[in-house]
Structures are given as C-alpha cells and as structure tokens.
Nucleic acid binder design. Sequence first.
RNA 1: GGCCCCAUCGUCUAGAGGCCUAGGACGUAGCCCUCUCAAGGCUAAAACGCGGGUUCGAAUCCCGCUGGGGCCA
Length: 486
Amino acid sequence: MTDPALPVRVRFAPSPTGFLHVGGARTALFNWLWARHTGGVFVLRIEDTDIERSTDEMIAGILAGLEWLGLDWDEGPFYQSRHRERHQAAVDELVEKSRAYACFCTVAELEAERETAKARKEPYVYRGRCREIEPAEAARRVAAGEPRTIRFRVPEGETAWDDAVHGPTSFANAGIGDFIVLRSDGTPVYNLAVTVDDLDAGITHVIRGDDHISNTPKQILLYQALEVPVPVFAHVPLILGADKSKLSKRHGAVAVTAYQDEGYLPAAFSNFLALLGWSPGDDREVMSRDELVEAFTLDRITGKSAVFDVQKLEWLNGQHLSRLSGEELARAAAPWFERAGIATASELAGRGEWFARMLTLVAERSRTLPDLVRQGRPFFPGPVEYAPDAVEKMWKDPAEALRALEVAAEFVERQPALDDLERMEAGLRALAEARGVSAGKVMQSIRVAITGQRVSPGIFETMAAMGKELVAERIAAARKWLRGRV
RNA sequence: GGCCCCAUCGUCUAGAGGCCUAGGACGUAGCCCUCUCAAGGCUAAAACGCGGGUUCGAAUCCCGCUGGGGCCA
C-alpha cells in the first residue's frame, strides 16, 4: 500500500475517442476535489494509445470541457502513447522476474480452447499452456521470428483491496487467467500501460468509474509483480440515464459542453455533479466551489449509481444564478446578449453598472443564462413584440386596456424621473383611484406595454431600469396598437 | 453465461443496532406573500424490494432470493 503520509497525487486519464461526457466529468471533478481538499496534485493524462480512434479534436474538446468546469490540472497533459518505451521496459522487467512469459498460442488454438470451455459450460480462462516453456527455448523461438504475446503469470490465491468507496473487494485469481500484457504486434495492453503510467506519475489514489473494478485485480497484480506500492483505489458508481441504463447519446446532452451551450453555470454544474454519488453528510445542497473542496472526502461517496436529473440541475443553476453579484452576472451573461444580437460588447461595457443592475432584477426568476436573455431583452431600446399569451391574459378587452394605459401615460408624464420606487407606487395607486381604474390593471397593462411579456420583475423596478423615455415611448406605441383593435 | 458492484420517497440523498412516528432536497399538489412570474415561507401526498436468521431491539449485521448495473465472453 501507498504510504498514507505521502502527499496525494491523483489523475484523470480520459481516452480521446469521444467527448468529455458527464460521467467522465464527474470522475475528473472527484479527482480534482480530492487533490484540492488535500493540497495534493492533479495530473492529466491522455490515454491515446488507440491511435486509430483518437483525434486532436477530441483532445481539444476534453481540455475545453475541463477548463469550462474550472478543473485545472497541475501536471500534464501527458500522452500515454509517448510512454511506449517505458511500457516495454516494464514488460521486460516482468519477463526477467519470470512474472511474465512468452505465449506462442495461435488465435486458432485459443479459439479452440474457448470453444471447448463453452461446450463444457465452463468459464473460459487461458489455461497457461505456454507457462512452462523454458526461457531459453522461448528466446530461441522469438529469435526465429515466431509470433508471440507476453502473458502475465497470475499467481494462485486471490487479489483483494480495500476500496475507498466499496470497502473490501476481492477477486479469485483463478478466474482471472494469465492475461496478455504485450500483444503480438508489440503494443502494450491497457492494464499494463495504465499501471506503469500511474506508478511513474506517483499516483497515490486512483479515483475512477465503477466500470474499472474488474481491471483492478490485474493492475494490483502488476504493481505487486513490479514490486512497487499499490495506490488506493476508489471506484465511483456510474451515472445512469432516466431509464436507469448507462448514460448515452439517446439520453440527450451527454457532452459537458452541451450544458455549457444550454447556459448552465460551471459552478452549478459541478455542484450538481458532486451531489451525484456524494453528499456532505448534512443538509447542504447549494454549495460553492470552495465549500465543495472543503467538504469533499472519499468515504462519503455512495456505492450506488445515480440517475441524472435535469430538473434538479435546473433548480441548482437557478440557485447559483441568484447568488451571483451583478458584476458576476454581467460577466456570465454578456456573451449571450452579444450572440443574441441585443447589444455589442462595447455597448454593454458602456453601461456596465446599468446592465449588472438589470440582470440582478431578472436573475431571481431565471434558471439558465438564456432565461436572462429572454427576460433582459425588453430592457434594451427598440420596439417590443407583444407575446400572444400576454395579450390574451392582460389585454383581452382592448378598450379596458386602453383606459388603463391612458392612466399609465398620465402617470409617467407626471413623474419627474422614474427612480423612487415607493413614490412611484404611491403615485400610481393614487392616480388609478382618482381615475376609477384598478391599480393592478394599470400595472399589468404597463407590463405588457413595456416588456411585451406576461412576466417581468416588479413593474416599478422595471420602469426604473428602462428609464422614462423608453417607458413613455412604449406606452404610446401600445396605445396606438390597442386603438387599432377596439 | 462467468465474475464483480449495488438495492431508503418518481429522482438525488441522510441514516454506520435503540435518537426513525425514517430527516433533507428536486419534482408534484395546496396555502401564504403579491402588480405578474419567480424567490421565500408553510402544509400535503410519497420510500427502507422480498424471505429467512442474529439480537431484548434491525433501514442499519449475516444468509438466500429477486431486481438493476458493470466488466469479460
């Protein structure tokens, strides 16, 4: 076992044959949290040994995903494909120590063995036919150009470890069978490469998905044969789709960048991911990055796989959104307003304070960044479009709406400036009463007139944020529009 | 099929033998607040898969079954 006093070194080792999906992102997050919690080191390694299926775009996508989530790594990215010589050397070492041997069995022979086992309804494991070939003879046959693989000599007994998540876990070695560590084409096999890379990187804790549990005994056997300390293993349960099957494309957005595109905050998304399979042990749910780092421990990871629940993600994002300061909101939302063609970056920067204030108004009733855009749009100059549902609900009777807006127009005209919320409200209520119109009706009508929507922040705050000129202009436009429908 | 992992409200979870009349959160329903919608507050419905043990006592420990998942084939 690794000396527990050693500084923690963890790694995230994605293979770039696909994008960074939510499961991988959570694995990365847990590693990162553990490193930051312990003051340890987070290493990034790209497992690109499957050259055929690995692409630079995928690598770039994975890095972008990690960066979006704020999971910064301290070392790397290292590339597994560049460690070929080390892998080879480790295989040589195993052969020298007689912990591995050359196997000359052909594919056909192995196939036959497998068929026999199947016919007898026995589980298939390699029988170790080449186990006892003398090293000298093996060397001669290799020199003669005979194809061979290198197999690991699995000892008798069982391989066990104390999983940081699952507790004591063990596999009978008899069920493992002498596995290949080097293919006949000279390429190292996954378990060998991972083990060697992890030991070279001084990894103390291997935190990865449950789907690697069955690789673990082989890797432990390799550590032992190489006579190096075995790291702590923590197998995190998988994330499932709503139908409880492994999360995949048909469950919708699985690449983390998709959530970025949908307007989720990285802090909220990682908060959500952290709560999938882990909990702080108390009733806290909405947690900042720092709180997560502070509270995170491996022993609080559940052993049970979790279903990805978008509704909870949305709620959490809304919670994070309403906790942001105006300035932070502005920073997060600005690109979205630009992309929507509502304002340019310089226009927003020019009215930065106003923009931030407007966003805080709107943030409380928003769950994602696009919600902010939808609700923020009417605050910018230009005509508004009246949403059909708003018209239906608030302006069902055009004559009545018109009357309400006449009062509204008079009200706005009388206001020196739209800034004192309390005075505005008192003034509007008084005027409405004097004119014999319900104050609520006036406010609702103003809402549709100036935002085009049924829903907005408080009407006085909204008017204050828009300014007298824009409000007056829109009320006039609405009256004109309504006059055409009486 | 073999091996391994897992099993508390629909979902995420708390629970490490008596504190459990099983707690919190999302979602759902209702109420309050109210110029709308949110937010917030209050309330409700909603779970220990089944069967055996162990124990004075089990959601918690053990065994079996069932179910789900993973890896390999």
